[in-house]
């Protein structure tokens, strides 16, 4: 079977062919029993497909979707509550920490005679041994 004619045959199921194409296809169909059989096969296959595979997910599908949606919403609400609580809790610690750090920095700044990050953080010449001697350790 000529590829071009076969392509024309498939196209004839989808769109209107031009008069010339239609005439050429009809001629080919008249001449070739093989092409006629192919046309029947295509028709049969298209019918089978249009009847399609199963078109249902089984009984109570809508209820299952609603259940899943409700569960997802409850779940997301639960997580939301957890994160909000966590955020509120840590916000207090974070604010307290930031205030303490600011106080420390201002204190160090007042003690030191120059404005550098080392002075501010009290880490100018401190060695490991000196740090160990500090009451903090």
């Amino acid at each position: 079977m000529i590829k071009k004619t076969l392509r024309l045959l498939y196209r004839s199921f989808e769109c209107r062919l031009s008069e010339r194409e239609q005439a050429s296809l009809e001629q080919a169909l008249e001449r070739s029993p093989e092409l006629r059989a192919e046309k029947e096969r295509i028709q049969l296959q298209r019918e089978m497909l249009s009847q399609g595979p199963a078109s249902s997910f089984g009984p109570a599908f809508a209820e299952r979707v609603m259940g899943r949606l409700d569960a997802a919403e409850t779940g997301s609400n639960g997580w939301e509550l957890f994160y909000t609580t966590l955020l509120m809790l840590f916000r207090r610690f974070a604010i307290a920490g930031a205030v303490a750090l600011l106080l420390l920095l201002s204190y160090n700044l007042r003690l030191g005679d120059k404005l550098s990050s080392e002075e501010i953080f009290f880490a100018s010449d401190a060695t490991h041994e000196e740090l160990k001697r500090l009451p903090l350790f």
Binding site: S56, F57, A62, L69
Partner: peptide, 17 residues
Amino acid sequence: FKEFIEKYESQVAATVI
């Protein structure tokens, strides 16, 4: 929404299956 699911179930099922 439940009514919507029931209306479009067969269409979605045909596509997905």
